[in-house]
Simulated scan of single mutants.
Amino acid sequence: MSAPDFQPPVNPLPPVVILFFLAIAGVEAGLSLGEAGLIGGPGAVGWRLGLIRDYGFSGQIFDWMIANGQFPLSEVKRLVTYSFVHLGFTHGIFAMVLLLALGKMVAEVMGQVAFAVIFVLSGVGGAVVYGLLLNDPMWLSGAYPNVYGLIGAYSFVLWRSLAGTGAQQARAFTLIGMLMALQLLWGVFFEVGTLWVAELAGFFCGFALCFLLAPGEWARMRAGLRRR
């Protein structure tokens, strides 16, 4: 008698999504335990600020690199590393939840390599735009520009799907529109800063990268060129 197929109650996550999640969660777990006094002794209270200083993204440092034409690896690495250090436990938890939810969809539809490229380059693009457009002394930290890049990929998939059914494609941008509206509403009551610039840039990076990474897009582009 053959054994019945086992169906897990929750669909397994793609390994690359788990890898990025564990990288962020591991850093946050260490920092949170240190702040709670469970590891590291009294000095652990300053770990978070130390990591932001060493691995966060500074627009002023970026401006210095552009102005002097010097790009030391110790500073360039911040374009990637800032995404793995968050301002606090809650800040990190929300980013991780969004990463799991959106990352699963993007990795399953576009593939794990495409997911990794979109996640990393959306964070890089968000930081670059933040550094170029603004002169804000506030350091950039956290995976939100990366997550917004995944929202861009999600919007792309929905946009293509709606085009295939003849539906209104503008509906694909409902999520990003709602998030930006919430940012605006929140800004009426609280000081939200300018970090939303990096997040919005991350969204556009994620959306644009899908033209290169989404399955079938190269064939679609070649077909369009031939018709011309």
Rank of each mutant, 00 (worst) to 15 (best):
S2W: 01
P4R: 06
F6D: 11
Q7F: 08
P8K: 10
V10A: 15
P12G: 04
L13F: 11
P15C: 05
P15T: 11
F21P: 01
L22N: 03
A23T: 08
A25L: 15
G26F: 11
V27F: 11
V27C: 10
V27K: 07
E28N: 03
L31Q: 04
L31H: 03
L31S: 06
L31W: 04
L33P: 02
G34K: 06
G34M: 03
E35K: 11
L38G: 07
I39Y: 02
P42K: 04
G43L: 09
A44M: 13
A44G: 13
V45M: 14
V45K: 08
L49S: 15
L51I: 12
I52N: 12
I52S: 11
I52H: 13
D54W: 01
G56E: 10
G56T: 12
G56S: 10
S58H: 14
G59C: 12
Q60K: 09
I61Q: 12
F62W: 12
W64H: 04
A67Y: 01
G69S: 07
L73N: 02
V76N: 02
K77I: 10
L79W: 09
S83F: 07
H86M: 08
G88I: 01
G92R: 00
I93Y: 01
F94H: 12
F94S: 09
A95Y: 04
A95P: 05
M96N: 07
M96Y: 06
M96P: 07
L102W: 11
G103Y: 05
V109H: 13
M110A: 15
Q112G: 08
V113P: 00
V113Q: 01
V113T: 10
F115I: 08
F115M: 06
F115D: 03
I118P: 04
I118S: 06
I118C: 05
L121G: 01
S122T: 04
G126D: 14
A127H: 12
V128T: 07
V128G: 04
V128Y: 10
V129H: 06
Y130M: 14
L132Q: 05
L134H: 03
M138S: 15
M138C: 08
G142W: 07
A143M: 09
Y148A: 15
A153T: 12
Y154E: 00
S155C: 02
R160I: 11
S161K: 13
L162S: 15
Q168K: 05
Q169P: 15
A170P: 00
L175Q: 03
L175W: 09
I176W: 09
M178G: 10
M180R: 02
A181I: 03
L182I: 14
L184Q: 10
W186T: 13
W186A: 14
G187A: 09
E191P: 00
V192M: 13
T194V: 01
V197G: 04
V197F: 00
A198Q: 03
A198S: 05
L200Q: 11
L200F: 04
L200D: 09
A201S: 14
G202W: 15
F207C: 07
A208T: 09
P215W: 05
W218P: 00
W218L: 13
R220K: 06
M221R: 08
M221K: 11
M221N: 04
M221Y: 14
A223F: 02
L225F: 08
R226V: 15
R228D: 08
R228S: 10
